[in-house]
Structure formats: structure tokens, C-alpha cells
């Protein structure tokens, strides 16, 4: 009798074995994902850094020079790989579209969570989801046929440029920022609102003094997430920005972004050539930027926990 109990206790039960199996499977899948991420980083970095190490492009020149023609060399014999116009283009469209989208997104989110949480939410929720799901080429196409002519007629120039890119990106990131802002506002506990109203606050006072203030980390995350999406968007921007690797003098002159130069150029260069390596450097820059955006989001999330 005793031996039986002892034996059954010492033997691994089915539950223990299946738990071990589950752990192994999830560990394996995680390891694969980590491996993929690491190898992407390694690949992009090795290619992207080759521009600086094998092709002797100065890092500072790469970031600050304005002539982008990596196939040819300048008077010193160095490849002309100045990415500054693209960096400016990328940051300009990102920041401008985020600046325009933020008030719209937050106002919509307030409407959906505070003002009309039942009817308004029911109508707007599927709308934002739909907008997120529209492929970027469709946004680009609409931008090309509607926004570019509109900009041309209203502000002059060819219509292609940072302004058109901003408008298209504004519409593209609006649903993302909105739905994340909705999540942030909904995460504000009901009892903050009750406490505020019970102290004699009006609904509007409650919204801007308590709800928005408590949700600030979440709202900031939403905006930065939108910016990271805008920064990485390639196709739609490429269709409306004009694709001139020149420093833009105004918002309606053709410009380019890191992504648009990549999509335009990647089919036209030979692996291992200077031009190809230079494109990889741009890709590396994009990767680093998205890493920075992620770090900022993490930082804010940690601050928000408190």
C-alpha cells in the first residue's frame, strides 16, 4: 500500500509531462522568433555598415550631405551618399502628419468614450477598423488622384511633395492613433470619473482635468505609435511625394523619404555595389528609428505604471 503511494508520487504524472511538453513547444517558438529578429538585424546591419567600412563613406557625411547619387563619386573619390534630404523628408511628413492627426484622433476618441460611448462608439468603432484595414496602395492611389491635384490647385507647385505626403499619412495614421487613444481613455478607471463628478465637476472638467490627464501616457504612446507607422510607411508616400532626392525648399516641392528612396531604388541596384549598400544603410537607419520609437513607447509605458 505504502509502496504504491510512494511509487505514484515519484513517477511523473501525465499533467507534469504535458506541462513540460507545452513549455518546450513555446520555448522553441520563441527561440525561432528571436533568431529571426536577430538575423534580420545582423543582415541589415552588415549590409548597411558596409557603406561606411568597405565603401569608405563618412557616417557624418551620410547623415548631413545633401547629394544622393551613391553610384558616382565626388571630387575626393568618395561615393555621394548624402541621405540628409530623405531624413528631412521622413521626419517632416512624420511630424506634420502626427501634429495634424493628434487633435482629430483624441477628439474622436473622447467622443467615442466619453460623449457617446454607446451609439457613437458602435458607429465609429467599425469605421476606424475599416480605415486601418485599407491597403496602403489604395491610400496612395487616392492621394495621387485627389490629394495631389488638390494641393496643386490650392497651394501651387506640382502638387507632389511633403504636403501631399502629410495629408495621405494623416488619413492613414488617424485610425491607428484614434483606436489606441480610445483604448487609453477606456483604461481610465470609472471611479476617477465618479470621484471627479461627485466633487462637483462638470463632464467637460472631468474629461480634461482627470480623464485626459490620467490617460496621458497612453495617449502619448498612441501618437508615437502613429508616428512610427508614418515613418515606416513606404508605398502610399512614395506615390505622392514626388521622389526627388533633393532638399525640399517648401512643402509643395518634390521630395523623398527614406522609405520612398528604398522602394524606388531597390530593384535597380546590383547586390554588393555601392548603390546597393547605400540603400541598406537607409534601411538600417529606418530600423534604428523604429527601435527608438519602440524604446520611447516602452519608457512611457513604464512611467505610466508608477
Amino acid at each position: 500500500m505504502h509502496d504504491q503511494i510512494k511509487e505514484s508520487l515519484l513517477k511523473k504524472s501525465r499533467a507534469t509531462r504535458s506541462e513540460r511538453r507545452g513549455k518546450l513547444i513555446s520555448l522553441f517558438c520563441t527561440a525561432i522568433i528571436i533568431l529571426v529578429v536577430v538575423s534580420i538585424f545582423y543582415f541589415v546591419a552588415s549590409k548597411g555598415l558596409a557603406t561606411f567600412f568597405s565603401n569608405k563613406v563618412n557616417v557624418w557625411d551620410f547623415l548631413s550631405k545633401t547629394v544622393w547619387n551613391p553610384g558616382s563619386t565626388d571630387s575626393h573619390g568618395n561615393p555621394q551618399a548624402g541621405a540628409f534630404p530623405m531624413i528631412i523628408g521622413s521626419f517632416a511628413v512624420t511630424l506634420l502628419s502626427a501634429i495634424i492627426a493628434t487633435p482629430f484622433a483624441i477628439a474622436t476618441a473622447i467622443f467615442m468614450t466619453e460623449i457617446s460611448p454607446t451609439k457613437g462608439y458602435k458607429i465609429l468603432q467599425p469605421v476606424t477598423e475599416l480605415l486601418v484595414g485599407i491597403p496602403s496602395v489604395v491610400y496612395g492611389f487616392i492621394g495621387l488622384s485627389v490629394v495631389v491635384p488638390f494641393v496643386r490647385h490650392t497651394f501651387g507647385g506640382t502638387g507632389f511633395g511633403i504636403l501631399a505626403g502629410t495629408f495621405v499619412l494623416f488619413v492613414m495614421i488617424l485610425p491607428t492613433v484614434t483606436s489606441m487613444s480610445v483604448d487609453a481613455l477606456r483604461a481610465v478607471p470609472r471611479y476617477y470619473r465618479e470621484a471627479s463628478l461627485a466633487l462637483g465637476a462638470t463632464r467637460w472638467q472631468t474629461i480634461y482635468k482627470v480623464v485626459l490627464r490620467s490617460a496621458t501616457p497612453g495617449l502619448a504612446t498612441a501618437v508615437i505609435f502613429g508616428m512610427s507607422r508614418a515613418f515606416g510607411e513606404a508605398l502610399a508616400v512614395q506615390m505622392v511625394i514626388g521622389n526627388a532626392a533633393l532638399l525640399p525648399h517648401n512643402l509643395v516641392s518634390p521630395a523623398s523619404t527614406l522609405t520612398s528612396v528604398l522602394t524606388m531604388g531597390m530593384g535597380n541596384t546590383v547586390m554588393g555595389s555601392v548603390s546597393n549598400n547605400a540603400l541598406w544603410s537607409l534601411a538600417l537607419l529606418l530600423l534604428l528609428m523604429s527601435l527608438i520609437f519602440n524604446l520611447i513607447i516602452n519608457r512611457i509605458a513604464k512611467k505610466g505604471e508608477l
Binding site: 465618479e194 470621484a195 461627485a198 472638467q205 482635468k209 508608477l306
Partner: peptide, 29 residues
């Protein structure tokens, strides 16, 4: 009305602000 009839809830529900800001909330309103 709610300025004349204050309410304290079951769960302590201070705002995620400083102690000072919590206390002066109603006065700031």
C-alpha cells in the same frame, strides 16, 4: 448639488496626481 453633498467611495479612489493636487481638485474647479 454635488458641491454641497460630497461623496466618499468604497474603494479609495485618489486621482493619479500628487496629494496636494488631489485635495485642491474641487477648489480648482
Amino acid at each position: 448639488l454635488r458641491k454641497e453633498i460630497g461623496m466618499v467611495f468604497q474603494q479609495p479612489n485618489p486621482f493619479p496626481f500628487s496629494i496636494y493636487e488631489n485635495v485642491v481638485y474641487g477648489l480648482r474647479l
